[in-house]
Design a protein around this nucleic acid. Structure first.
Length: 463
RNA sequence: UCCUCGAUAGCUCAACGGUAGAGCAACCGGCUGUUAACCGGUAGGUUGUAGGUUCGAAUCCUACUCGGGGAGCCA
């Protein structure tokens, strides 16, 4: 008999009822009495479990009734309507084959565990309801992202993970080397001689694929990257990880307005797609993790995102009458508390803040006509804060060169980036979306370590 | 990195200067429709680590390690 899946049983709408089937899965919990018992079986294909009923007619009744949580079994029997209220059908076992026993010290109980404890058993936590929901949603969301961009004419670019430029300007980098740490080769000045290293120069793990993506944007018009990113910042917060995934679209012949429209369309598409395709998971998270999750996500799809400039945001904050811990003044970057006020209290929905002072933004952002702000945009969302950061890029070679000089950047390191402005450079724009922050937003999980399978954070690279 | 709170049985917690306990899990037994099943029993501990104060420390003090929350950096 070929094995069916629990997903098929739920999708089959009665097709399997009163049929003999086989299901392979893992015991989530077991309740037994003298002559019969129940097993909650999860086969990994679906969020919900299948209730298996077994009785003393089984040849191995005694062994089955003593199965420890986590054990793997194969069950053959007839699918019937269930008299119990909590499940539409159940499997009357005729034969249960024990495929892999679990040990008595199995660390997962049917009781609720703290997320902190589950992080210490990250190799097993995917067997819990919450992590089963989170990681299926993560998978579906990743698919939705590719679907959105592919269906809108974007080309997916795999930008390098190893980068030779040490000046991408987005934070501390992890150095990559094959040199012997105990006795590295030295040059005549006594410094480490990286010309003897694997690549013949200093190399690091990427902190952003944006600059490389821009080069492909000038060939394909619309491109996106979706890959891992590494930051060696000593950030100890629920929102930062040393290894995370980013989505970075880049569009040609487009400015800030098109950029914001793209971000809004993309976000709405992903949210709708996830809501539509993982209803059981969303319902569970809404009940046990974040009671306002469904309302918030539905609201996202329906509402038009807010728009205001940085200057307007500063005015609103000044007039708000709120007591902020940090002062509000034009020219200073918005603090987390300021961003939260704007998106959560003043607007109550996602908001684009645009046109920041050039001093607090990156060198590649396009200078506005006022000469003191750049065409930048941050998307702030309730609960998570900054979800998207982007800008129109400076396509004018003279402006870009001048700005790099002002900031003391070595233009030789960026020769290929500057070439883009020389050979048919056009208006273009793009943004970066932190994938894990999106997953946090989609699931209601409040710690980034709980939306990454094996999170890497300062002092933690277990597994 | 800074501020702050915490660490006691496998898990979740209690004991707040005077003999370390409970629920769940595990193990043994009972129970004919359970669903965080229920009922009875057994076993389980150098109280995060290292010092100090005290007749006596899980409890008070110091340092360190790890974890939570907040901040910075950012996505």
């Amino acid at each position: 008999m070929e094995a069916a899946t629990v997903k098929e049983l739920y999708a089959g709408k009665g097709k399997y009822l009163h049929q003999r089937i086989q299901i392979n899965g893992w015991v989530r919990t077991l309740r037994s009495s003298k002559t019969f018992g129940f097993i909650e079986l999860n086969d990994g294909t679906f969020f919900s479990n299948l209730q298996v009923v077994f009785d003393e007619n089984l040849a191995n009744y005694k062994e089955v009734s003593k199965l420890i949580t986590g054990s793997a079994i194969k069950v053959a029997g007839q699918l019937t309507e269930s008299p119990g209220a909590k499940q539409p059908f159940e499997l009357k076992a005729e034969c249960i084959e024990i495929e892999g026993l679990s040990a008595p010290d199995y660390p997962l109980q049917k009781k609720r565990h703290t997320f902190e404890y589950l992080r210490t058993i990250a190799h097993l936590r995917s067997r819990t309801n919450t992590f089963s929901a989170v990681f299926r949603i993560r998978s579906v969301a990743a698919y939705a992202i590719h679907k959105f961009f592919q269906e809108n004419g974007f080309v997916h670019v795999h930008t390098p993970i190893i980068t030779g430029s040490d000046a991408e300007g987005a934070g501390e980098m992890f150095r990559l080397t094959t040199l012997d740490f105990d006795k590295p080769p030295r040059d005549e000045k006594g410094a480490v001689d990286f010309t003897k290293d694997f690549f013949g120069k200093e190399t690091n793990l990427t902190v952003s694929g944006q600059l490389e993506a821009e080069t492909y944007c000038m060939a394909f018009n619309k491109v996106y990257t979706f890959g891992p990113t590494f930051r060696a910042e000593n950030s100890n917060t629920p929102r930062h990880a040393a290894e995370f995934w980013m989505i970075e679209p880049e569009i040609a012949f487009a400015g800030l307005r098109e950029n914001m429209n793209l971000a809004e369309d993309m976000l709405k598409f992903i949210v709708s797609y996830v809501l539509e395709n993982t209803p059981a998971e969303m319902q569970f998270l809404n009940s046990f993790v974040d009671k306002s999750l469904l309302e918030r996500l539905t609201n996202i799809v329906k509402s038009d995102f807010g728009h205001l400039t940085y200057s307007q945001a500063v005015e609103i904050l000044k007039k708000s009458g709120e007591q902020f811990e940090y002062p509000v003044a034009w020219g200073i970057d918005l603090q987390t508390e300021h961003e939260r006020y704007i998106t959560e209290k003043h607007f109550g929905k996602p908001v684009f803040v645009t046109d920041y002072p050039k001093e607090i933004k990156a060198f590649y952002m396009r200078l506005n006509d006022d000469g003191r702000t750049v065409a930048a945009m941050d998307l702030l969302v309730p609960g998570v804060g900054e979800l998207v950061g982007g800008s129109q890029r400076e396509e004018r070679l003279d402006y870009l060169s001048k700005r790099m000089d002002e900031l003391g950047l070595n233009k030789e390191d960026y020769w290929w980036y500057l070439d883009l402005r020389k050979y048919g450079g056009v208006r273009h724009a793009g943004f970066g979306l932190g994938f894990e922050r999106l997953i946090m937003y989609l699931t209601g999980m409040t710690n980034i370590r709980d939306v990454i399978s094996f999170p890497r954070t300062p002092k933690n690279a277990e597994f």
